[in-house]
């Protein structure tokens, strides 16, 4: 489904990703872990199409198409969804309106009829139940005045409504209490199927207690330094990233001399 080859990304002249390779097949769950500043969120933003990130080298192939030249909305319509680490508050735009616009934009692109009002509400209500969202959510403005946990739950709720093919979760677990974590995990788990893939970016191994991951990748200084099965997450929890960071540091020193 997704293949990233030798990806280099710059933000304001600073190179953040430095030759990243990653391959994700449909049906798989991949987790990316790494210390602060290693480039985890950059990867998520680049996949979603953030224009402030400049791809200087490499390619991202999604379902046979080069993603780099696609606008954020085209990517969304092609089935890519990113749950934001910091969801944006949009005062004055009600969730219902926002969701219907988004769903129908995607449906139109896929050649489907737009949802009729009743169908739409029915579908939305069932997903709200899944994520334990309050009924007043639909009338409220997008993310406005939401608590941190509500924002994250709302992201997963949007994901459930939009039914993307590739789901990217950018530190969705950060700042969540155990109840919210369980709800978010339930949402993700209910969406797992052979046609859908997940890329879970996380700082902690905790989320992986609830979401069974197929692969864990360790991202340090803009490169994947180790990949393995779910047991790798436990190892990281135990030992941290220091061994890689040191060796990376030495490499840089070596390169500079």
């Amino acid at each position: 489904m997704l293949e990233i080859r030798n990806l280099h990304v710059k933000v304001e002249d600073k190179e953040i990703l430095r030759g990243l390779d990653l391959k994700i097949n449909a049906g798989e769950v991949h987790s990316i872990m790494g210390p602060n500043g290693s480039g985890k969120s950059t990867l998520a933003q680049v996949l979603a199409g953030r224009e402030t990130y400049e791809v200087t080298e490499g390619e991202i192939i999604y379902e046979g198409k080069n993603l780099i030249y696609m606008s954020p909305e085209e990517r969304a319509r092609e089935g890519i969804f990113m749950a934001f680490q910091y969801p944006v508050e949009i005062p004055g735009v009600a969730n219902t309106y926002f969701l219907r616009e988004a769903v129908n934009a995607v449906r139109k692109y896929r050649g489907l009829e737009p949802f009729k009002h009743v169908e739409f509400i029915k579908m939305v209500k069932s997903k709200m139940k899944l994520l334990d969202m309050d009924d007043d959510l639909l009338q409220r403005s997008v993310n406005e005045g939401f608590s941190g946990g509500e924002k994250k739950r709302s992201e997963i709720f949007q994901m459930a409504v939009l039914e993307p093919k590739l789901c990217i979760l950018d530190e969705t677990d950060s700042g969540l209490d155990i109840d919210a974590l369980k709800i978010v995990s339930k949402g993700v788990n209910s969406m797992r199927n052979p046609e859908r893939a997940f890329l879970i970016i996380t700082h902690y191994q905790r989320l992986l207690n609830y979401i069974v991951t197929d692969y864990v990748h360790v991202l340090v200084d803009g490169r994947i330094v180790k990949s393995g099965g779910k047991e790798l997450a436990l190892e990281l929890e135990d030992k941290g990233y220091s061994s890689w960071e040191q060796s990376e540091g030495q490499n840089i020193k070596a390169a500079n001399t």
């Binding site: 969304a76 944006v88 616009e101």
Partner: peptide
């Protein structure tokens, strides 16, 4: 906010 809306499929 513009990026957020676009990332959900809006032009």
């Amino acid at each position: 906010a513009i990026f957020y809306l676009r990332s959900r499929g809006m032009t």
